[in-house]
């Protein structure tokens, strides 16, 4: 299988005043195409930092990172913005939808920064919304949607760019358990039927069961990697 994410010796140090904090300490991790990986660990273990680095939202202090066979750890800000736009779909705990735009507008957002024209953009956004089962909610603004529906809009926004990998940071963290499992089954379907690679961070063992592999992190290091099922 193709290794689309390849981290080697990744460290991330923060300086808070005079104190140096090691968030990640020489992590090696490979994720293959079509995997559904769950990153777990207690608060402050560095799992979100790891996800941010994989998502090119943050740069490692040391180590190398290959995304789709491309070294990305030293790229410029603007080049990273392009990488995020082309290869990565984000799903956040707090959805992060634009309140002024309707569902269709929110899903189109990444395509705008790619420079896709209006009609094509709407066509693709509709298709993505249909995939998450929101064909009838296209013109609703976030405030008119339930939490679960908002997160589905966010998923549609992530898949509309046909990303190499979807990164989900506690995607069910602000949802009730029913909506949460609904979201997770959408992820599982996307993973199984579309073959989209997914990396999620979660606290919940239950949500971890939807994935194929659990990476357990403790104090900035990989404790162990478990296979699910």
């Amino acid at each position: 299988m193709l290794e689309i994410i390849k981290l080697k010796g990744i460290s991330r140090l923060y300086k808070i005043g005079q104190v140096k904090v090691t968030a990640l300490n020489e992590i090696d991790l490979s994720i293959e195409e079509g995997e559904f990986v769950t990153i777990m660990g207690p608060s402050g273990s560095g799992k979100s930092t790891l996800l941010n680095i994989i998502g090119c939202l943050d740069r490692p202090s040391a180590g190398t990172y290959e995304l789709s066979q491309k070294r990305v750890e030293k790229l410029s800000d603007s080049a990273l913005a392009d990488i995020r736009n082309k290869y990565i779909g984000f799903v956040f705990q707090r959805f992060h939808l634009m309140p002024a735009l309707d569902a269709l507008g929110n899903v189109q957002l990444p395509l705008i920064y790619r420079g896709v024209f209006g009609r094509e953009r709407r066509k693709r956004a509709k298709a993505a919304l249909e995939m998450v089962g929101l064909a009838d909610r296209m013109h609703h603004t976030p405030s008119q949607l339930s939490g679960g529906e908002q997160q589905r809009v966010a998923i549609a926004r992530a898949i509309v760019v046909e990303p190499t990998v979807i990164l989900a940071d506690e995607p069910t963290g602000s949802l009730d358990s029913k909506s949460g499992s609904n979201i997770m089954s959408i992820f599982r379907n996307l993973n199984r039927e579309q073959g989209i690679t997914i990396v999620q961070v979660t606290h919940s063992e239950e949500m971890a069961q939807y994935g194929s592999k659990v990476v357990r992190i403790l104090d900035g290091q990989i404790e162990r990697i478990d296979k699910v099922g």
Binding site: G55, L57, N85, P110
Partner: peptide
């Protein structure tokens, strides 16, 4: 928050 989201989905500083 909107600024962060835009940056995540590919907006550059210039945008």
């Amino acid at each position: 928050e909107e600024i962060g989201l835009r940056r995540a989905v590919g907006a550059k500083q210039g945008d």
